[in-house]
Design a binder for these strands. Structure first.
Lengths: 342, 342
DNA sequence: GCTTGGCACTCAGTGGCGACGAGTGCCAGT
DNA sequence: ACTGGCACTCGTCGCCACTGAGTGCCAAGC
């Protein structure tokens, strides 16, 4: 028995099952693919594949269905990522190029991903931790009320309100502003935080009121270390869950719950990988028992080669892996390119 | 036949059906509510209620189910909005008080609403149109690249990148900044836009480069009139859709699709109403055919008495209206109070 | 005149039963 | 090593009778 043909059979089973959503039998298999052998031969191969754990039968008198292990082999060895058509590439590029700010980029990405793959798309916001300070502004709303605005290189904006004990003059404000700016602009966020802390030491605090400086520095540091935004994700294409049809309770319910819990979702997406490697996690390979019927296709993205965050899709284990992987890879690349430019 | 008792019967039917999710028959009705009459009597009342269109039977040998018209009567006349317990009020207050910025307020509100009502919650971001300009900043990223930051009274931040043709000096920048600020701060957004346009007239453009001023003004006006943010909504509690159980195709699918389309969602929520009136739209009363099995409970909210935006929940027509209305009202009030303070 | 008990009727849901057929495993033949 | 044939399994479908919740109507009672 030829091992090559066995793999062909596995590939055919996966493709057919993904297309039809029904267990596939030996007869249908030889008809729909040009295998050049008889059903009986295929049956032998299938028996072998079943012994090795790549496929399974839902019940005795039914066709075969790929197991997670079968999908894994398919993804690893039987699939060549088909590049997107140039028309598709252009569509992606123009749609993403229209984005006006970071929020818009993220929202357009989820939309794009969910439409390309017809699955639920998830895009993590770029993490703060590796971004640099683009600008900090200190604005007096009233005499005793300051608005701090922190703008990061990724385009993220954080703002904080600070109440100060005693009134602050226009000159003090200007000095405070320029001091803070000088210490932080261009710095990676962690260094900026350290530089700010240094400002609290008495000798560097020129004509500034100690209390005010302290309050402002504290608020800025808090904003910088705010990992709330690290956990922000955008979700789109939940309507595609409706296509699950069968297996509602087993698959859709836990997935809907996961989509609400952003922390869970991030763990599901997995750590950001560098480069443009597309990660596939199939069924039980993921961290959650309840989601053993869903797969994740994800990729890191970010300016240059460093992966600031992750994006991807979540779908049933029975999905079109080649097409999905191609779409995820293409979108991740374009988003990275856009972040490069900004 | 007493009309009062007929209404009692209707109320009992609605309450039972909401609780059990099953058509309710005459016998169960007299047992579970102290109606003090026999099943046969109730049957007569039910026949009358059916003639008048308040209830219906799914099929001949089944109990009765309220129609949309029945729910409407129930909501209008048979329900007294029960105030939330003081413990619940406190929980709402403390949870919302922890919010650090506008985004956080909105996110916490959806979360709160969906948990209180166990339905899908929708919160519209406060509209820009009635807010005032709190601050505008013009920052030179490079010599020819400006970052505009627009901060509104609601806490919303818009940013725009502008490329200018020729390098701009620090002094010019300072003058531009203060000119723009003087013209706009504190103004309602529409007036601010007009004031900015006035700056383009040659006589007011002191030592400033015309082209640069024009570019900046254009970008700011664009940001102010950007109605994208008017259409922003946050959605939460989609996991509650899983509880629909039956009627998956008829109810969940179109709803999932609607949740993706924010424009659709906003139309569904309806216009913001002033005051603290809670609006209930039952089944077919809404604008969309496909959503005839879902009801919307919504309320306007915003600082003072003006309703800047709408929040509410979307759920099956078969829902606990009194409890839901109370929760929506309570959250709308607290969110408004928070916007008052900010 | 409203209320009530009685009674016949309807009809969705359930479970048992047999026919059907897709699909398999195995074996003997080429 | 592949193929055709054959017996076997078992899930699906349609049929049928049964059950029971619920109704509508009517005549009797308060």
């Amino acid at each position: 028995m030829s091992d090559d043909r066995k793999l062909d059979v596995l590939r055919a089973i996966v493709e057919d099952y993904v297309a039809t959503e029904e267990p596939v039998g030996s007869k249908a298999l030889v008809e729909r693919h040009g295998l050049g052998v008889s059903p009986a031969t295929v049956r032998n191969d299938m028996a072998a594949l079943e012994d090795e754990g790549y496929i399974a039968q839902p019940h005795t008198s039914a066709g075969r269905v790929p197991t997670d292990k079968g999908y894994r082999l398919f993804v690893d060895r039987l699939t060549t990522v088909k590049p997107m058509s140039s028309a598709e590439r252009r569509a992606i590029a123009t749609f993403l190029d229209e984005a006006v700010d970071l929020d818009d980029v993220v929202h357009r990405s989820v939309r794009l991903l969910s439409q390309l793959t017809r699955q639920v798309a998830v895009v993590q916001y770029p993490t703060l931790s590796r971004s640099t300070v683009r600008h900090i502004d200190v604005i007096a709303l009233t005499e005793s009320r300051l608005l701090l605005v922190l703008i990061l290189s990724t385009g993220r904006v954080e703002q904080r309100l600070v109440e100060v004990d005693r009134p602050i003059t226009e000159e003090q404000l200007a000095e405070l502003r320029s001091t803070v700016l000088r210490a932080t602009v261009g710095e990676v966020i962690a260094d900026a935080g350290a530089a700010l802390q240094a400002l609290r030491a008495p000798e560097t605090a020129g004509g500034l009121d100690r209390d005010v400086t302290d309050d402002v520095v504290a608020a800025l540091c808090e904003a910088m270390s705010d990992h709330r935004s690290d956990q922000r994700v955008a979700v789109g294409g939940a309507a595609n869950l409706a296509r699950y049809g069968d297996s509602f309770d087993s698959a859709v319910r836990p997935l809907l719950e996961a989509l609400e819990e952003h922390v869970v979702l991030l763990k599901l997406l997995g750590e950001a990988h560098t480069g443009d490697a597309v990660t596939v996690r199939i069924g039980h390979e993921g961290p959650y028992q309840e989601l053993s019927a869903t797969s994740v296709v994800a990729s890191g993205y970010g300016p240059g080669d460093e992966a600031l965050a992750t994006l991807g899709i979540v779908g049933p284990t029975r999905m079109d892996y080649p097409g999905t992987m191609a779409a995820v890879r293409a979108v991740a690349r374009y988003v990275s390119r856009i972040l490069d430019e900004a």
